[in-house]
């Protein structure tokens, strides 16, 4: 019976060495251990200098995304036993600048997220005294899937367009825009068209579909973007053919 497994980590400590390097660690092969448990074992018992992000350990905070054997994965929800006999290669998520070891710089993503106006833009402001908006289960179902994104960024790592074109808003940001576009309480689609039709918007997507395969929450960003392309194309022609005022409506 195999008792341990080798974890190969791509490391980077800018003060020590200007280029990344690989380091191997031998960790116990415990049933139930996720890849993240192996990393915390390394941190606690073998090497206190290893840096990585993690928090909830239940696949919902989105902190612990990394490349595991070349595939983007949530390390808390990916188990050692899936990779027998090893070794398991762990690298920071693709297509992001790497700050240190497995820690990536996500500031650009945070900017893109805000850029798509991911908040409810109602047709008219309502006060609390007006009570709740009615929304039927069917209306909720129309956008529910797109609310499930945990911003783990696996889809950005999976998407070659993100890697080739740094201006591309990316799967999660466009899916989030669509989450509000399809919400029956929202009337902000026109404002979001300005962003999504622009350079870096939905039409930069070339339909590779890898984002949906990588998504641990089944958000299906591919679908969200394809559906936008249909809506966006209509809007594009409307803006081209109709006088300004009419198109805005």
């Amino acid at each position: 019976m195999q008792k341990t497994i080798t974890i190969q980590v791509k490391r980077y400590i800018p003060e020590k060495q200007p280029t990344p390097f690989y380091q191997d660690y031998e960790v116990p092969l415990e049933t139930k251990w996720g890849v993240l448990d192996a990393l915390t074992y390394i941190k606690d018992e073998l090497d206190g200098t290893l840096a990585f992000r993690w928090s909830c350990h239940m696949g919902v905070c989105g902190s612990c995304g990394m490349m595991v054997n070349g595939q983007p994965a949530l390390t808390c929800a990916t188990f050692l036993e899936e990779y027998l006999p090893g070794p398991i290669c762990i690298e920071p998520l693709d297509h992001f600048p790497v700050i240190r070891d497995l820690v990536i710089d996500t500031d650009a993503f945070m900017g893109k997220l805000k850029y798509v106006k991911p908040w409810l833009i109602p047709a008219e402001e309502r006060s609390v005294d007006d009570g709740e908006n009615r929304q039927t289960p069917a209306e909720l179902a129309a956008f529910k899937q797109y609310t499930l994104c945990i911003n783990c960024l696996l889809c950005y790592s999976a998407c070659p367009v993100v890697g080739l074109n740094e201006d591309f808003l990316g799967p999660a940001a466009i899916a989030l825009a669509q989450r509000y576009n399809y919400d029956s309480r929202d009337a902000g689609q026109t404002q979001r068209h300005d962003v999504l039709l622009d350079h870096g918007g939905a039409f930069d997507c070339t339909l590779i579909g890898e984002c949906s395969r990588a998504c641990p929450k089944h958000v299906d960003p591919t679908g969200a973007i394809q559906r936008y392309k249909a809506d966006g194309a209509m809007e594009f022609w409307k803006r081209l053919l109709l006088p300004r005022g009419a198109a805005k409506r």
Partner: peptide, 29 residues
Amino acid sequence: TTYKRFRPAPYTPKMQLSWWWQKPTYFAY
């Protein structure tokens, strides 16, 4: 970029020209 204290020097891996060769799904695309 080169590291200076309090100025992090992130490295950005560039995609290789052969990226489409690395995954069956990319190849299919």
